[in-house]
Design a protein around this nucleic acid. Structure first.
Length: 615
RNA sequence: GCGCCCUUAGCUCAGUUGGAUAGAGCAUCGACCUUCUAAGUCGAAUGUCGGGGGUUCGAAUCCCUCAGGGCGCGCCA
């Protein structure tokens, strides 16, 4: 845990204000903030204290600001306190106090910026949760990176975080996967693969083959190896049809005259899901993502969790049988009023009540999702965060309503939506089609540009803004590639420290306790101020659930450092290492080491590996 | 038709949760550097924060409204 100079000053200001105005309501006191002013000419920090206290205190803001400024000036770390503008108090901090942050960083290491803000609250961050119907592609990638970085960020800011992956292994999608896998199995075993082309198979099975990608070939082969030809379909005449009472053991193919046991499809599905999950975990590992918990939807359903959740809602009087109005304006062609089992989502802010059962009696995805979120609540999670693709945006109100209902409003659910990523190559958008198998897999992407570039770039936009991922740009070694720019700053830091140590190991020893008085240059102080802002940045980004802010901060930090470096090119007295002045050298090396530490701390949140040299 | 998200410099985007004269990079223009600590430096110019209205000490930020772009809209997950 390291000090945050902004919260430190906030406490001081609140304390002084409360002493000045004993009757000030706590609500006003809570609105008192200390933040860096936009214009650095206004000083290191500014507080709105006089503005927020003026009305309840019945005093004009400037007068209050003047009184507050006088008291703030008495603080040891404050060298200037001036009322300004409509009632701000601008503060300038003692430079020794600021320099002290360098030592603080070096003592704390990458734990610098850790915070207790989250108060140890148990937060569950669920992300990726791709259907296990194929390898991960770029569409999943953004959510994976955003979720992982957000989890890291909140951990750093003091939440007790669980990273979770929900395996959607129940429902129609994986059923379709089972059939596609079965088709691959048949093509592996049969002597006449042409006769079992996709069109013939669809006709004979009576199902659509949604997943035709090559990645299922290996699953078909694995099944062929294990079961030989025992799962092969058999053509039957009308006279050979199985008795009525066993018909249910066969799927839709039977009507087309083909015997295919549903248990075979189950086997195919299970095998495929298992193998896909292995592949997905490999993909995640390549991306540097490792969730703590993998939860199976099917296992949850089979354990009766959905019935449990529904009856819980029933006991709360939130379930009823009813008929929904058709959507206003646009009525679907096949719309017909139908009584359904509905959840009273409107009681919790949703527009309409939401169905829990399909017409065939099975549960909707929503019902399963209620059970799943109730399960998280039941595990003692106190804050739920789901990272979703933006195409699920319409689903947000009903899910938050459901979590309110099952947790009696105790557990908030927050949804982070991730917009589409458009991949560009040579300035041209790369078109992707799942059906045609032309989509870019996560593996392709990582092999092309590297894991760190993928992760960093995915965090260079607010998650709910669309992003263009330019394959050429992210590997470019120039100022306008933030990945490179930040990595290069870290490598330069390491390079300086290596050189110094090679000259004399005593130069780099014990930097945490070195005298920093020689750090007087404006560019040096600017870098120190940036470093001192890191703990505040962590808290702000975590509170806003916006990990991309870390990327922007690191870009700024790198910029400050590069400025300093480049000044050494024009003026050799500003170089970090000056043989004739070991005291200044040691102070500057401490600053360099602190810069590298903060970069590492930030990259750690982003899950990006810092490099020690550029090649 | 309804709901949600987005619209900030020529381009790509930030904007510290309502703070002061709205910022950065690229591109443009003008100087400098030609070497070391390779993968430049400094300066200039650039705005109806999509339009309009409101809330208040104060709005790019909150509310209403209009325009343009994206997403979604009962038995898909």
């Amino acid at each position: 845990m390291t000090e945050n100079i902004f919260t430190l000053l906030t406490q001081e200001v609140r304390g002084l204000l409360a002493a000045l105005l004993p009757d000030l309501p706590a609500e006003a006191l809570a609105r008192v903030q200390v933040e860096p002013p936009r214009d650095p000419a206004h000083g290191d920090m500014a507080t709105n204290a006089a503005l927020v206290a003026a009305k309840p205190a019945r005093m004009p803001p400037p007068k209050l600001a003047a009184a507050l400024a006088e008291r703030l000036l008495a603080l040891p770390m404050v060298t200037e306190a001036t009322p300004a503008g409509p009632g701000f108090v601008n503060l300038r901090l003692d430079e020794n106090f600021l320099r002290g942050q360098v030592s603080t960083v070096l003592k704390a290491g990458t734990a610098y910026g850790d915070s207790r803000l989250g108060g140890g609250v148990r937060a569950n961050v669920e992300y990726v949760s791709a259907n296990p119907t194929g390898p991960m592609h770029v569409g999943h990638c953004r959510g994976a990176v955003v979720g992982d970085a957000l989890a890291n960020l909140m951990k750093k800011a003091g939440w007790a975080v669980t990273k979770e992956y929900y395996i959607n292994d129940a429902g129609n999608q994986v059923q379709a996967l089972g059939w596609a896998t079965y088709w691959r199995y048949v093509r592996t075993v049969t002597m006449d693969a042409d006769a079992w082309n996709a069109e013939n198979a669809e006709r004979r099975f009576g199902v659509a083959l949604q997943y035709r990608g090559d990645y299922l070939v290996a699953v078909g082969e694995a099944l062929a190896e294990r079961f030989g030809d025992t799962l092969m379909p058999r053509e039957v005449g009308a006279s050979e049809l199985p008795p009525e009472e066993t018909m249910s053991a066969f799927g839709p193919a039977l009507e087309r005259g083909w015997l295919v046991k549903t248990s075979w499809i189950d086997t195919c599905r299970e095998t495929a899901v298992a193998m896909m999950m292995v592949a997905i975990r490999e993909d995640l590992a390549m991306l540097g993502v490792a969730q703590d918990v993998f939860r199976s939807e099917r296992a949850m359903v089979e354990a009766g969790a959905v019935e449990g959740a529904v009856s819980l809602l029933e006991r709360k009087g939130l379930i009823y049988e009813g008929v929904l109005e058709p959507p206003k304006g646009k009525t679907p062609d096949d719309w017909e009023p139908r009584p359904q089992t509905l959840f009273r989502a409107t009681d919790f802010g949703d527009d309409v009540d939401r169905p829990l059962r399909k017409s065939d009696g099975s549960n909707t995805y929503f019902a399963n999702d209620i059970a799943y979120h109730a399960d998280k609540v039941g595990r003692g999670e106190q804050l739920l965060i789901d990272v979703w693709g933006a195409d699920h945006g319409g689903y947000v109100p009903r899910m938050t309503a459901a979590v309110k209902a099952v947790s009696d409003g105790r557990v908030p659910l927050e949804i982070v939506l991730c917009q589409i990523v458009h991949v560009l190559k040579g300035g041209e958008p790369v078109r992707m089609s799942k059906r045609a198998g032309t989509y870019i897999t996560l593996r392709d992407l990582i092999e092309e540009v590297g894991r760190d570039a993928v992760r960093f770039t995915m965090l260079t936009r607010k998650s709910d803004a669309q992003m263009e991922f330019d394959l050429d740009r992210v590997v470019e070694q120039s100022r306008d590639n933030p990945v490179f720019y930040v990595q290069y700053a870290h490598a330069r830091c390491c390079s300086v420290l290596r050189q110094a140590e090679a000259m004399d190991p005593a130069l780099t020893a014990g930097l945490g306790a070195v005298s920093l008085a020689a750090l007087t240059d404006g560019a040096e102080m600017a870098l120190i101020r940036r470093i001192a802002a890191w703990p505040r940045m962590v808290e702000a980004a975590a509170t806003a659930r916006e990990p991309h802010r870390i990327a922007f901060y690191l870009g700024d930090l790198a910029g400050d450092f590069h400025v300093l470096w480049n000044r050494g090119r024009d003026d050799s007295t500003l170089r970090f290492i000056r043989e004739e002045d070991p005291v200044a050298t040691r102070a500057r090396l401490a600053l360099v080491a602190a810069t590298a530490t903060v970069i590492r701390s930030g990259l750690g949140v982003m899950g990006v590996t810092p490099v020690n040299e550029m090649r």
